[in-house]
Design a protein around this nucleic acid. Structure first.
Lengths: 225, 225
DNA sequence: ATCATTCTTTAGGATATCTTTATCTCCCTC
DNA sequence: GAGGGAGATAAAGATATCCTAAAGAATGAT
């Protein structure tokens, strides 16, 4: 056994403890976070092989955390939740969750589903470092380099850029981009996009007035090449 | 929609019917088998993108079927079962099942889990690329290539071209084109069409005066070949 | 509490695209 | 070969879209 690392994001201490014991008994290394924010930070810094995420967190909506993770974290995220609403399950799965279990869960089943998720992921080992000419983007490390030099980006800027590089060559509509980066309810805020595309261009383009990477598709959206 | 093919292996006719209706409503092609033996044969002959397998089959133990499939079939197998025993779930998952749902299942959740399994498998790439001689048009990426080189099109130009390639070989009337691209209320603006067909020809034809793709049907409209 | 950073909002000017007009070509009929 | 209709083209005008800078608001760190 390769002793994979698993991050548990849950605000209930007794659940964390239970999971810690069960997971370690099965030979996994365990990281713990009590809030969505802490979870995202730990995920970024330690890059666990799998994340167990409770949807009912105190600081953020679990779906938000999931979406934020999915921008750059492409390993399995397993959802735990007390909520057994079908719509919640459907939403989480469509947001990219690998599985969805309702509390109270059965430990052996959880372990089997973790094995399944990890096994499945092994085959699709995807590289998180993307190379685009003079640009290097590391989705996991949330790092952008231009000609070898690190480019500092804010969180939103990076999420936007990550969306672009994951859809290289494809024209993305304003609405789609806004939904993916800002979430539903922001789909009409086209101006946000203009401002952030502007600041991204200043950082990654040789000549921001003549962008070679971030092309605007007038009346449609933007395209990354 | 990519119209993936899904094989349903279940001995209960009413379950098969329910699944058939739900799956087809979601745009999947459906194959059906009543027994494990028939299921394996159909899987081998048709190579579906996903298999839904009931564990409680008359002729064979479902686990046997699963193990047999796993020898050569590496796409997702989703287990349906009336049995909610943890040991059964664990066994099935460790035998390589992609997921395990207990009957009675919820349709929307099942559909979401199917999407998740297919997405993970990625084998069913949506094909939106249309090839027309020297032209390549990617409807999803909004990209036009002529002899391998990218042709820049405005939004309306692309919409117009997309309408043409989707109706290749067919003569489209002015009215119809105007309604589809500009919307109702523009059906008399034939001059728009002339202008835009003109600019499209300049971009995609070798010799815009002797168009080979965008043929005018005098008194009627245009035809794309 | 204060400061720094990031995000949101506003406003103006710049650009691209669309619309309209005018002129020209082609083809058919007489 | 003159006239008319349908279509093509070019270019000017109108409009929608986009970009930039910068100020205000929110957030987070010290």
């Amino acid at each position: 056994m390769s002793s994979a690392t698993i991050l548990v994001v849950d605000d209930e201490p007794q659940i964390r403890k239970l999971l810690e014991i069960s997971l370690e008994a099965n030979g996994y290394k365990v990281l713990q976070a009590q809030s969505g924010k802490e979870g995202i930070m730990l995920a970024a810094s330690h890059l666990p092989d799998l994340i167990i995420l409770d949807l009912g967190l105190p600081d953020k909506n679990g779906h938000e955390v999931l979406r934020e993770l999915r921008n750059w974290y492409n390993r399995p995220v397993l959802i735990l939740s007390v909520i057994d609403h079908e719509s919640d399950i459907v939403t989480a799965l469509d947001e990219g969750a690998a599985d969805y279990l309702t509390k109270p869960f059965r430990t052996a089943e959880l372990m089997a589903r973790i094995r399944s998720a990890l096994r499945h992921n092994q085959s699709t080992e995807t590289n998180t470092v993307i190379n685009c000419g003079d640009l290097v983007i590391d989705l996991a490390a949330r790092l952008v380099k231009k000609n070898g030099e690190i480019v500092k980006t804010t969180s939103t800027e990076f999420n936007l850029l990550a969306l672009f590089v994951r859809n290289e060559g494809r024209a993305l509509t304003h609405q789609y981009i806004l939904k993916e980066v800002w979430g539903v309810g922001y789909q009409e805020e086209t101006q946000y996009l203009r401002v952030f595309v502007g600041s991204l261009r200043k950082k990654i383009e040789d000549n921001p007035n003549k962008p070679k990477h971030l092309i605007t598709e007038s009346g449609v959206g933007y395209r990354f090449v």
